[in-house]
Design a binder for these strands. Sequence first.
DNA 1: TAGTGGTCTAGACCACGGT
DNA 2: CCGTGGTCTAGACCACTAA
Lengths: 236, 236
Amino acid sequence: MPKKNLSTRIREFIMTHIKDGTWPSGHKIPSESEMMKLFSASRMTVHRTVKEMAAQGHLFRERGRGTFVEKDVPRSELLNIGDIAEEIAERGGTYFSQLKFLDREPKSPLTTHVFGVHAGNIARSKVVHYENGNPLQLEDRWVNLDVVPHYLETDFALTTAHQLLMQAAPLQKAEHQLTAALPTQEQQDFLKVQANEPCLLLKRKTWSGDTIVSYAELLYPASRYSFGGVFTPGTK
Amino acid sequence: MPKKNLSTRIREFIMTHIKDGTWPSGHKIPSESEMMKLFSASRMTVHRTVKEMAAQGHLFRERGRGTFVEKDVPRSELLNIGDIAEEIAERGGTYFSQLKFLDREPKSPLTTHVFGVHAGNIARSKVVHYENGNPLQLEDRWVNLDVVPHYLETDFALTTAHQLLMQAAPLQKAEHQLTAALPTQEQQDFLKVQANEPCLLLKRKTWSGDTIVSYAELLYPASRYSFGGVFTPGTK
DNA sequence: TAGTGGTCTAGACCACGGT
DNA sequence: CCGTGGTCTAGACCACTAA
């Protein structure tokens, strides 16, 4: 049994009540002193955990009144490292994916630009992710085979690239750039959209330590997906 | 002299060294124990501050090695409440804006959807923000006149809507939705883009306490602007 | 082994809200 | 007034890195 942090246990305790509806939006959650007793924790630990959850938009706090459940955190929190399959499952949708392309990738200006001149072997995959039968995301991904040697032998019907990468290398950092684009002919076919349907294009580079693990371009039809988030002035 | 938090002073100490180039990207900053002495602070305080800055992408930390300056935080951090004028100024660009429309807004399905049925008087403004002479953002904004009564008398050559709103009501919460769209005819004219130029559309609702202060739709040509961010696994 | 950050404790004082 | 969260202290033990 892997021992979990106290703060992790507190966090999961709160998230469970939010997710299963026991604590609906706006509900007042137990005060810090109450949770100290519940978990035999010090106030600092409870406070730190709850404060972090507030910073992430799950809760909001008012001095003198208490801590409350924030209203629906929109679908996908940006700057979050998420598994699209998990995300769809959480929304209650049915998920499946289709592998469109998988091969070794030759050196090109793009690969050296992303992975640097010392780039070793690189694989490339294209996967379409469906929610309730509709294409939601086209994942065009370049993977560092030095870090994930068995990438080309993956059965993408069983595993998502995300799961594989998380397993191969603990993610330490991710860099995002979000822009908009019109789909190319191939992308239109894969996503089943018209040429004039604007799409969100999320470019994501992920690192483990000092080495780049993977670079991905994730394309979403704007009519089917959007990014959302809540900002509460945290640190100042 | 307003007294500042210890953590604020530590934060500013670090940020100053980063911004003025004393501590370039990748530079190792003083350890927690060193900063304890520098500020006569406890380790918890130093640790908390530095950890927060790491979570926000300014620093990264490695156990056993130290804390380092993160490489350039990309242009605009999403989920940030920023003033576009400030942002452009920080990049060293020249900024100016042009008021295209300003008037009282009649009740409509959209206004009641956003502001609720109890909506009072609402104003609407359209402003184009330029960087180095190029239209960067079209700001289409609805403002609650009960909160900001003098909005219609603003001189937008001198003040941005953002400054005005921050002044009128301390911002407590903002909700974002980010999607992509093609520009309408009017938007094409304002932003000087073609009909087939994909744009990023950021919808932002801001609250002060329980009342909605403003709703804005910010449109950026994708060729001129993108959102970026760094994620470092903070809490787990 | 010495130095680093990760987590936690058991106190403390303060500012604010509602009573 | 009491209960709430905001900040801070002065310790502690642990896990990891580098020499």
